[in-house]
Design a protein around this nucleic acid. Structure first.
Lengths: 380, 380
DNA sequence: CTGAAAGCGCTAACAT
DNA sequence: ATGTTAGCGCTTTCAG
């Protein structure tokens, strides 16, 4: 009797204890192939068989085993996202977007936190090679040029951010030079001439900080404004305290600054705080512009003008690329792809009247000046 | 010849294109079992064979296929964490801790964002049942009592937070009533009698907000202080803007408040901001205490006194429980487990001199008053 | 329309 | 010490 074969089969394995296709088939009195067909909708079965199979599936509470399917199909339907730390709002919010984009496409996301550890990066790479996930989105930091080969391989990969090395895969990033340039230009258009830079650094390494510093200097230069090193303040950490300290130093060595470009919103928040503590008015006395456009910036007092670095697009493009790579069965060619950024004008540095306040990169034209359309946390 | 069989085997599959055990075995001239043994260290092989196998592995760049191993062993070595949104710093930081704890134990973490969507919760539950991961840590919100059965099943599960329903699994949470009680008592000990509550709510549903409101009221009551509903301000969203608005309303209807307990640090940050805008001194005129102890609170100006809700312990206990459940092969029994919380005194409401400022729950005694030992972002 | 069967790549028990 | 083998649970031809 078929039922016998089925019940034996059900007991034979040393598996997970969950109901298998075999048991469902036995219960319905059909073959496992038929059940599989029914479940996938690959073949149409007669109404009577379909009903029996459905009944069996329901009664047994069958759910397909992911590992078996993966072994057979080679697809895990999950991706990996590796960022420096979720403690940094920018990355937390990026992760949120990546998860949302992946979810819409039926993928889950393993999130890894890299910190400053090379070993963790290696671990992620290793997992990617083992096929734990269908691909890796990595936003490494503190890596040198030689680290490029760490990422060699055939598994789908997307590298995020301005990197000092040439990634052997698509590299999606905002144009940090232009983003800082635009933010600086906005301040210059508002009539500011003594613009301080907090959190940038002029160094040999090509990373987001040095690119932003470069954009800042280029904007000054194009406007015929002098570059004053006393207006540049480096930092040790990306937090508000550092921003506050920067103001203290600036007040001492270059007290006549009339605007601040902070390379990160947390820094900007700290800058604003300390400026107000010292009785300076924002934006009247000092305009402040941040970068990253983290959620907090919409709710600070005053609200913070910031550059949206295209997180949303980074997330979507990275996920799409990974899925495409996985479908193609091989890694995509190296390519540096820029996503659009745009300046979001809020109270800390409003758009000048009659002047376009929203300066996007070419790919994002027509953004409305000074309008912050950001909504609640749970946006689409 | 063995090499022949091996190379044929290598070509026969329609798999992922990666090198398999079979190919390594063929190359080394041994059986796949031997290679497997070598890799797992399960059996010791002769030096000569070991060398040949090692060479084959290296030359071919072999990496084990995760799906196959999972199918065989029933373990994925990944867990799932489902939270409301990574846009909320508390959850982002919790995720960071869970990822760290899991990583230490050799597990990866799939992070899901639930928003206010029941469908997303169902999706996570479904994935857990399919064995995509070895277990699920879920911190649901906006769920009613009837939703408990959503979580019925045998897969390893841990529920986080104060829930209106009785979870069919371990429920790890801070004691929200006591946490708010302690924070309020701290303010009372500092001599404050008109303490406002921002973000709590007195409702029938048992959740973190109502529990905190309850703790607030209990502390007033125990101190013989009157409960004044005008000092309680509900909110629509957890952000700083709401905190600022709360101050506006309080100033209008109950201007003589001398302290604020905010049920969330972002709220507290907005509260502080607006208080200062209005020329009130913190903590002299108004003391402010938040809850959650997010990273920002260490760097705000003034720094924010807050209640650390035991994120670290929540993360570690949840991960450990899940791993134990997976090892046992079944879900653990329902159990409400409280983790220790502690008040971290900073400038917005310093510990009173000669008075213990750090009030932990019984499980966390001996905390030092007013000492904030928090360090950099990349802590252990 | 349904059933049989061949694996996907690996682990682990059992043989030799 | 090494080889052989039986599956883990599923998808997917290929027959019938």
């Amino acid at each position: 009797m078929k039922a016998d074969a089925g019940s034996r089969a059900g007991r034979s394995g040393r598996g997970t204890g969950r109901v298998t296709l075999r048991e469902v088939a036995a219960r319905a009195g059909v073959s496992i192939g038929t059940v599989s067909n029914y479940l996938s909708g690959r073949a149409r079965l007669s109404g009577e068989t379909a009903a029996r199979v459905k009944a069996a599936v329901d009664e047994l509470g069958y759910v397909a085993n992911a590992a078996a399917r993966t072994l057979k199909t080679g697809r895990t339907m999950t991706l990996t996202l590796a960022v420096v730390s979720l403690n940094q709002p920018y990355f937390a919010e990026l992760a949120e977007q990546v998860i949302a984009a992946a979810d819409e496409r039926g993928y889950g996301v393993i999130v890894q936190s890299l910190g400053a550890s090379r070993a963790r990066v290696e671990k992620c790479v290793d997992a990617a090679r083992r096929g734990v996930t269908d691909g890796l989105i990595v936003s490494p930091t503190l890596m040198g040029e030689r680290d490029a080969r760490l990422f060699e391989g055939t598994y789908p990969l997307v590298v995020l951010g301005t990197q000092p090395f040439e990634a052997p895969a698509p590299n999606i990033t905002v144009d940090n030079v232009k983003a800082a340039y635009d933010a600086t230009a906005h301040l210059i258009r508002a009539g500011r001439t003594r613009i301080a830079l907090v959190g940038g650094e002029f160094g040999p390494l090509r990373n987001s900080r040095s690119c932003r510093a470069e954009g800042y200097r280029a904007a000054l230069n194009d406007a015929g404004l002098p570059f004053d090193p006393r207006l540049v303040h480096g930092i040790y950490d990306w937090n508000s305290m550092e921003g506050a300290r920067a103001v203290d130093v600036l007040m001492e060595y270059a007290p006549n600054f009339d605007a601040v470009l902070a390379c990160d919103d947390l820094l900007a928040l700290g800058v604003m705080r300390r400026l107000m503590d010292r009785g300076l008015r924002i934006p009247d006395d000092v305009r402040v512009v941040g970068m990253d456009d983290i959620g907090q910036s919409r709710y600070s007092v005053p609200t913070l003008t910031s550059v949206d670095l295209g997180r949303q697009n980074v997330a979507v493009e990275a996920v799409d690329s990974l899925i495409a790579q996985a479908a193609a069965g091989r890694r995509a060619a190296p390519e540096l792809r820029y996503v659009a950024h745009r300046l979001i004008c809020r109270d800390s540095s409003p758009a000048a009247l009659g002047v376009p306040g929203a300066l996007g990169s070419p790919a994002a034209p027509g953004e409305d000046a000074g309008e912050d359309t950001a909504g609640r946390d749970f946006k689409a």
